[in-house]
Amino acid sequence: MTGMVALYIFMLAAFTGYEVISRVPVILHTPLMSGSNFVHGIVLVGAMVALGAAHTPLEKTIGFIGVLLAAGNAVGGYVVTERMLEMFKSSGRGSGQGRH
């Protein structure tokens, strides 16, 4: 990936993030923050690659901590977001989805 292409990806992704949540109602702010917190748990992939290429004991130790923290971010973020969103129900009027 050349530098310019990377820059374009960065720019487009930034606009996408802004647009995707620009009309979010206040009632979903907490779950959405938690959800976006889960999404940056993708750092797990990078932590795996970094630890996978580590050589010295120092690198391996930091890499181990990195993978551990990243897995915590991803799994914890998922569990709490899912728990919160699972509870949102409408009273049945309008377009509620009846699942619990």
Binding site: M1, F10, A13, V20, V24, V39, V43
Partner: peptide, 28 residues
């Protein structure tokens, strides 16, 4: 930070997910 490290590792998933959260989080 995740997006930036994505550039370092040349990892498209990290770049996109990190940047999307970076801007969505700023708006939030």
């Amino acid at each position: 930070a995740v997006g930036l490290e994505g550039f370092v590792l040349n990892n498209a998933a990290m770049i996109i997910a990190g940047t999307v959260v970076g801007s969505a989080g700023t708006l939030l």
